[in-house]
Design a protein around this nucleic acid. Structure first.
Lengths: 189, 189
DNA sequence: AACTGATGTAATCACTGGTTGACTTTCTCC
DNA sequence: GGAGAAAGTCAACCAGTGATTACATCAGTT
């Protein structure tokens, strides 16, 4: 991490750095308000590399979304029950570090207008709702609807927290998990 | 409203038309992805009038946000109880007409980066949370936190519906109100 | 009818941001 | 170590966007 000299050339690492910088920007500011020059600067590389590695700003956004969706899907083990949901959602919500945005979830709320990106986004949200519904043992539209209420609450909490609404933004797991448990029990119990 | 001939000159009506067109666009696409030329065209008016009446795109956005916030605040009567919340929120959520976005609520989720606009936005959200908390009779951070969970759910539901997530997007009051009642009772009951 | 201020229009400007192609530097392999 | 490929940089281009300006038209007044 020494600042002296140019960084060793490594396309995979550069691509990753761009992806992470982009995810932060897109998650925080949305697609249209994010400028690829800023992303490149965050990643410490030249703007033109975005075109080279991702084809276009759209392409970069799609890759961000896909990788975020993938991370999220992978974080949900197959044998989870309704009882595990509060902890799982709290952990995504509060994130690993203080002050860091829950970029993965926020990405699911950002739209670029691109059709393929929208497919990934809605597909992921839909898959989540269905997996939650499946945990209850029930099926059908009514069960998915219940699950969507839980999902909606999580998304809304993410937004409110990321815009700094107090006291929610400062709340820790101790405050959030039991409330999520109450909410989830009411909707899926 | 006849299409024949130039519209009668009426600055107040023009301003209102611009405001409504802008609210739709901003709510649907966000600030950065909305172009004032589109707004003007929707309103059937020349672009330059936006500068004349609102100073700038920022100014127009602020007025949209302020009027949306005002509409929402006014819709909450002072003597409401927790029991009235499900119906109130459902009505905002489903809106008056089918297919029409709940622009007022969505505006509260749109950010322009402008400081003054952000104050209105966060102030309105905060005021809502506090009014909901007050309905429970309790006070303090814990009560506001509970209220924010209800608010978050409403915002999340608005987003999911407006992005066409089925079956939620097609659900009517009969499906939504009872579920909101369950959720609200669990959080505030 | 002429004047005046309000309302609306069209052309233009200055600038931003995504994209492109040529160029330079670093790495890899023989 | 040198050739060729890969990685990265640079400068220019171009479409689009918000803002501005000068001009036209209408309604009410005297």
């Amino acid at each position: 991490m020494s600042a002296a000299g140019p960084r060793r050339r490594d396309s995979a690492a550069t691509k990753q750095a761009l992806l992470e910088a982009a995810r932060r920007r897109f998650a925080a500011d949305g697609y249209a308000a994010t400028y690829i020059r800023d992303i490149a600067q965050d990643a410490g590389v030249n703007v033109a590399l975005i075109a080279r590695y991702f084809g276009s700003k759209e392409g970069l956004f799609r890759d961000c979304l896909a990788s975020s969706a993938d991370d999220l899907e992978r974080s949900v083990a197959d044998n989870l029950t309704v009882d595990d949901l509060p902890e799982l959602m709290t952990s995504h919500l509060t994130g690993l570090k203080k002050g860091e945005y829950p970029t993965r979830i926020l990405m699911l709320l950002r739209s670029s207008g691109d059709e393929r990106a929208e497919e990934i986004r809605l597909g992921t949200l839909r898959s989540f709702a269905e997996r939650i519904a499946a945990m209850t043992g029930s099926s059908g539209d009514a069960a998915v609807l219940d699950a969507q209420f839980v999902l909606a609450a999580t998304l809304g909490l993410t937004i409110l927290r990321s815009s700094g609404m107090q006291p929610l933004a400062a709340a820790g797991e101790a405050e959030i998990t039991p409330r999520l448990r109450r909410l989830i029990t009411a909707m899926l119990g």
